[in-house]
């Protein structure tokens, strides 16, 4: 009873991120994106494989996000819900989703316009990517008050800016950014998962008793 209501609500909202699976799965997607850009860099220009890879980027990305979401659910069903219970989160209203999609599209158009207007700014693609992804982590941190998301935002900005200043090339820079950020996410998620599993051992009792309300 000692917990106040605000803390209960806060903890409930943070629950989705308490096991680190979201970061681990996102980290794997980032690593795969790193491999994707590295393969693009390795392929000779004008090759059929390069064309197919570039043409299929959106499909690969949407597929990875969809499968990633499914994987998080499977992992939570296997490891999290039996230990600390299940929460179904409210889906945001359709209007909010359209606003988010519109803002994302506007951001992409603005970025493309910026890079077209000033060709040298392509060197800053890793930094720009790092700052956009940092903004995502900062928004998430502010919404759910998970402190390690601030760390992820700072790491994203440092990594992106560092790679841009290193001038290692656009594709190599992007590949290195996604690979590096993927490893950071897996590390952060892995530590969170280890802590979660240590603090929440599997309940070993007669399951028939559970939920007899």
């Amino acid at each position: 009873m000692k917990n106040n209501l605000e803390q209960i609500t806060k903890r409930t909202r943070q629950y989705w991120f308490s096991d680190g699976f979201v970061e681990i799965v996102n980290g794997v997607i980032f690593l795969l994106l790193g491999v994707y850009f590295y393969v693009q860099y390795s392929l000779p220009s004008g090759s059929l494989w390069l064309f197919l890879l570039q043409a299929g980027f959106v499909i690969l990305l949407i597929g990875a996000i969809f499968l990633g979401g499914r994987l998080v659910n499977i992992l939570k069903t296997r490891f999290t819900y039996p230990r600390t219970g299940y929460i179904g989160f409210r889906t945001p209203p359709k209007a909010n989703r359209w606003i988010s999609a519109g803002l994302a599209l506007l951001m992409v158009i603005l970025l493309l316009a910026l890079f077209n207007a000033t060709p040298i700014s392509l060197n800053w693609l890793p930094a720009t990517t790092g700052f956009i992804i940092a903004a995502f982590w900062l928004i998430s941190a502010a919404r759910v008050r998970v402190l390690r998301f601030y760390f992820l935002a700072v790491m994203s900005m440092i990594l992106g800016a560092g790679l841009s200043f290193a001038h290692i090339g656009v594709l190599q820079g992007i590949a290195a950014y996604y690979s590096g950020m993927g490893l950071i996410l897996i590390g952060s998620g892995g530590l969170t998962l280890a802590k979660y599993l240590r603090q929440s051992p599997e309940i070993d009792e007669n399951p028939a008793i559970q939920g007899n309300s």
Binding site: I8, T12, Y86, F89, R90, I203
Partner: peptide, 16 residues
């Protein structure tokens, strides 16, 4: 708790 989510199971409510 239930006002912050769509649904929650018995185990979660008991722990919280």
């Amino acid at each position: 708790i239930l006002s912050a989510v769509d649904s929650a199971d018995f185990l979660y409510l008991q722990r919280e």
